[in-house]
Each structure stands twice: as C-alpha cells, then as structure tokens.
C-alpha cells in the first residue's frame, strides 16, 4: 500500500501544478495564449482602427500618430505602413495617410466586433464597466464576422455601443458623428448625453463613478473654468471641465425635466413607498427591459414589502404583483419617497 504521507504530498504537488498551468487568466496556459495573440494581424488591425478613428474625427493621421497610438517604435511603424500599403489597405499622400476602400471596410469590421462585444459585456454580463474596453480590445481580433453577426442578431441588432459610439452594420454603414462637447452647453440648456469617451481610463472611471451614461438627460446649471455644475437625470452633479469635455451631448428642447430626487428604491424601509422617477442608465439591455416589463417605470408607485433572510433581496409591491429585486438593482431605481409613513 502507498505511504499516505507521501501520497498526499505528491497529490498536493500535482494539483498545484495543474492550477498553475490551467487557472483561467493567470495560468501559464492563459499567458501563453495571450502572447501568441500579439501577432502581426493584431498590429495591422490596430493600425487600421487608428487610421479610421482619425478619419472619423476628421484629423490627419501620420506616421508619428500611429507609432504613438500603438506604442511601437518609429521604425516598426514605418515597416507596418509599408505592409499596409502592399496589402492595398492604405495610400500615402505625402505625410497624410489615407485608407483605401478595402482598408476602411476592414477597419469597420474590426470596430463592429469591438463595439458589439462591449455592448454584449454591458448588456448581458456583470463585467465591470472599466473592463469592457480592454476585453473588447482582445476579442475584436478573435471573433469571426459570422460570430459577430450571430451575436448582433441575438442582441436585437444594437445600433450603439454602451459608450454611445455607433456600431457599424455588417455592410459597413455608419452614421456621421453627432453632438457637441458637454462643455459647450450654456446654463439652463437641456441636452441628452449621446457619447462618453472610454479613454483614458481615469477619466472614464470618474464618469462611471458619477453615474454619467449615454441616454441621461442633462440640465446645465453653471459652467466656469473650474467646475461644471449640472443636473443629470434629476440628480445634481459637479464635474471637472477636463472630465466633462469627454462627454458628448445633443441639445434638446424640453421644458419638462426629470424631477429632482435623492433616494433610490434600496433606501425604502419595509412598508415605505415611493414613486419611480427614473431608472439609472447603468441598468441596460435585457435587465432594463425586464424591469420595465415588470412595470417599473417613471410614475409607478412601489412599496417595500418583505426583506429576505440575509437582508437581500427585498420583495416590492409593483402594480399589484410582489416582485423580489436584489439590492444592486434596487439602487438603480431612483424614487421620490412618499411622505406619509405606512405601517
């Protein structure tokens, strides 16, 4: 019979080894897969994306801007550009780099996959907002056009990504850029947020933390060089101008505003009730639709009825039905507390 002590040590060693190799994300296998992905194809696709991005923003892409965007040396950038030209994806007009039709179509395919994947992460997974862009940066090089199409169909052919960027169609159509920078908005003007820049990370994380998302309604209160004071979906908010500059809005004529409020559904004590004012734009995709299907809409009166054993979830009375929601969902439903205190 095998000596038990030796058997245990051996087994521990073997399982440790297996964990080191196979653990998703950190294991040797995952690392190896990552390095293997850093291929020439990725460089080409990233270069095309950069060129397209500049074209869309009506800027002039150069050899230097490319080297900067891809963080590669000038020599590498030069070799890459030669390669792109020989593939007829690019024409050089002096310093000025211009995409060919093939090049633009290719770039749009990659962008479509990137934005679809961000949309998928936002709508159907609980992956943190600040990670969407980075995961999509990897996935855009892995998806086949067929997979991208199947994903689009499943999600109901979304037309915008969660940052408000349009998702090119399978045939490469994309609308012209719209909106103005938030900092251009005058006091008392109303606008809808249509886009949020997801880079740099720090600025984006700040916007997410302050609950600014595409789709929210903005009422400008005051703006000066130190502070942008505004009301976002009925909540007063202050942003640094440098952060506000990363938000694009479309002015709207709207006289009625979302009323001001402080509470969310999660603040209701048992027996207390409130009227829904808005659902946070951080609640997206099927989750948002499900909430609305259940009758959680601006104007709906909701009463907190029962709390789960661990303090979560809470069952609410919503339009005649008892429906349990978890705390993190209840926090996304903004309400106006009803005055009278119910038993």
């Amino acid at each position: 019979m095998v000596d038990p002590a030796r058997a245990l040590i051996l087994a521990a060693a073997v399982s440790l080894l297996l964990v080191l190799v196979f653990w998703p994300g950190i294991g040797v296998l995952a690392r190896w897969q990552r390095t293997r992905l850093n291929t020439r194809r990725i460089l080409i696709e990233d270069a095309l994306k950069h060129l397209y991005d500049y074209e869309y923003q009506q800027l002039t892409a150069t050899h230097r801007s490319l080297a900067g965007a891809l963080s590669i040396s000038g020599d590498e950038a030069a070799r890459l550009l030669e390669g792109l030209q020989s593939l007829e994806l690019l024409r050089a007009q002096g310093e000025h780099l211009v995409l060919t039709d093939d090049g633009r179509a290719y770039a749009l395919r990659v962008i479509r996959m990137h934005r679809l994947w961000e949309r998928y992460l936002a709508d159907e997974t609980g992956v943190n907002e600040t990670e969407w862009h980075h995961q999509a940066e990897v996935k855009e090089h892995q998806l086949t056009p067929e997979q991208a199409d199947a994903l689009a169909v499943r999600m109901g052919n979304p037309s915008y990504d969660p940052h408000g960027d349009p998702i090119p169609t399978a045939t490469g159509e994309i609308p012209v850029k719209r909106g103005i920078a938030l900092t251009k908005l005058q006091p008392y003007e109303h606008a809808e947020v249509v886009h949020i820049e997801d880079e740099p990370d720090v600025v984006y994380a700040q916007l997410v933390a302050q609950d600014i998302h595409p789709g929210i309604h903005i009422r400008m209160i005051s703006i000066d060089k130190d502070k942008v004071q505004l009301e976002a979906d009925g909540i007063e908010n202050a942003l640094a101008p440098i952060i506000a500059a990363n938000v694009t809005v479309v002015p709207v004529d709207r006289t009625e505003t979302i009323e001001r409020h402080e509470a969310t559904l999660a603040d209701l004590p048992l027996g207390g009730s409130g009227r829904v004012v808005a659902i946070s734009r951080a609640c997206r995709g099927p989750q948002r639709r499900r909430m609305m299907d259940l009758g959680i809409l601006p104007g709906t009166t909701i009463t907190a009825e029962m709390r789960g054993i661990g303090g979560d979830p809470t069952a609410y009375m919503i339009r005649g039905a008892t429906i349990a929601l978890r705390m993190n969902q209840a926090k996304m439903i903004h309400i106006q507390r009803n005055e009278e205190k119910a038993g």
Partner: peptide
C-alpha cells in the same frame, strides 16, 4: 407566459 412581447428573450 411572458410579461411583454418586446424583449429579446
């Protein structure tokens, strides 16, 4: 049985 007919489920 569904609450709506407009979603992607």
């Amino acid at each position: 049985g569904t609450y709506s007919l407009l979603s992607t489920s």
